[in-house]
Amino acid sequence: MTDSIVVENVSKRFTKQYHRTLKQVSVAMMRRQQVTNTFLALDDVSFRVQQGEAIGLMGLNGSGKSTLLKVVQGVMAPDAGSVRTRGRIAGLIATGAGFHPQLTGRENIYLNAAILGMSEAETNRKFDAITAFADIDDFLDSPVGYYSSGMYARLGFAIAIHVDADIFLADEALSVGDKPFKVKCMKKLQEIKDSGVTIFYVSHAAGSVRKICDRVLVLEKGVLGFDGEVEAGIKYVKYDDESEGTDEELGSEI
């Protein structure tokens, strides 16, 4: 088997407050405050992913999951350590972000597909499949600004999923879709997995992680706390006991 993602000793340091005003800076200087303003969002994280593996990335809010995904995608550069990937990456990080509200659904499909690395010919070829999957045919020529947040998310997901990628990154991609759409997406994710694509899937829903993933990584305040079996990982984040019931109740099994 070949390595698909190799992450070695990656750290990312963030600043808590970037844009301080002249007033804040001068007050702080007068009081001679020396508060530390930075923290490690990723702290010496290392792991390897094989081609075709499906990884579930779990952890509490603010533990650094989205940050790790952005580093793997190449959108953010790590401060220390290295990330290497093999093949084409498609990401669904922050659903629907990057749509231009004044442009129509059609124009946004072309723009977003291009951003994800598709050529014009490729987009033309897949256009019907994308709109069929998003199921927004009637609204293709209205500005995306008038879409409901669910439609927004569906369109984003439909585009990302039609990129012929070797690595697929999804960050809480399905949190606003309705139930039928979620079921459809799970089926599609399974299909993608079966075609040998590496999947990196961030989710708080134990149910969907169980369904798709072969391995779980857990981040705790930027440190990789667990790397191994799906069940053990879900137990590790303590989503196991109450998860089934609440997942069902909250309708967030995905």
Partner: peptide
């Protein structure tokens, strides 16, 4: 545009000579 692989085996074969590179 090369024909994209549809199953795990052909994808692995196609990726065999693609290098590991920084995603930046």
């Amino acid at each position: 545009e090369p024909q994209r692989p549809r199953d795990a085996a052909s994808r692995a074969a196609a990726l065999a000579d693609v290098p590991l590179v920084s995603p930046a």
